[in-house]
């Protein structure tokens, strides 16, 4: 993992964190959280933990879908 990729993934993580904290709409927060996850996964792969990267990449959308269940029920009313 060279320096450009490390700096780029760190930028993705910092952008995701700042946007998730600053946004007001819940859907915008979920989109920014997805950017944060996109920055975290290459760090796990670069360390060589491929099984953990696979499991994490499959679990992260699951928790987003759980959060969307609350928003969907609120939108129905």
């Amino acid at each position: 993992m060279n320096e450009v990729v490390t700096a780029g993934c760190a930028l993705l993580v910092l952008f995701g964190t700042t946007l998730t904290i600053c946004e007001r709409n819940a859907f915008d927060k979920l989109i920014s959280l997805s950017v944060l996850v996109a920055g975290v996964i290459p760090f796990i792969v670069a360390r060589g933990y491929l099984d953990i990267a696979t499991a994490t990449a499959l679990i992260a959308p699951l928790s987003t879908i759980f959060t969307l269940m609350v928003l969907f029920r609120r939108q129905e009313r």
């Binding site: 989109i31 060589g48 491929l50 990267a53 499959l58 992260a60 959308p61 987003t64």
Partner: peptide, 26 residues
């Protein structure tokens, strides 16, 4: 690309499927 290992393509495929599912759900 980042790690030359045969199982890397599995992690990339898992992330691809997961992120596409997530944005479709949103």
């Amino acid at each position: 690309i980042i790690l030359p290992h045969p199982l890397t393509i599995l992690a990339a495929a898992a992330y691809f499927v997961g992120s596409t599912l997530e944005s479709n759900a949103i």
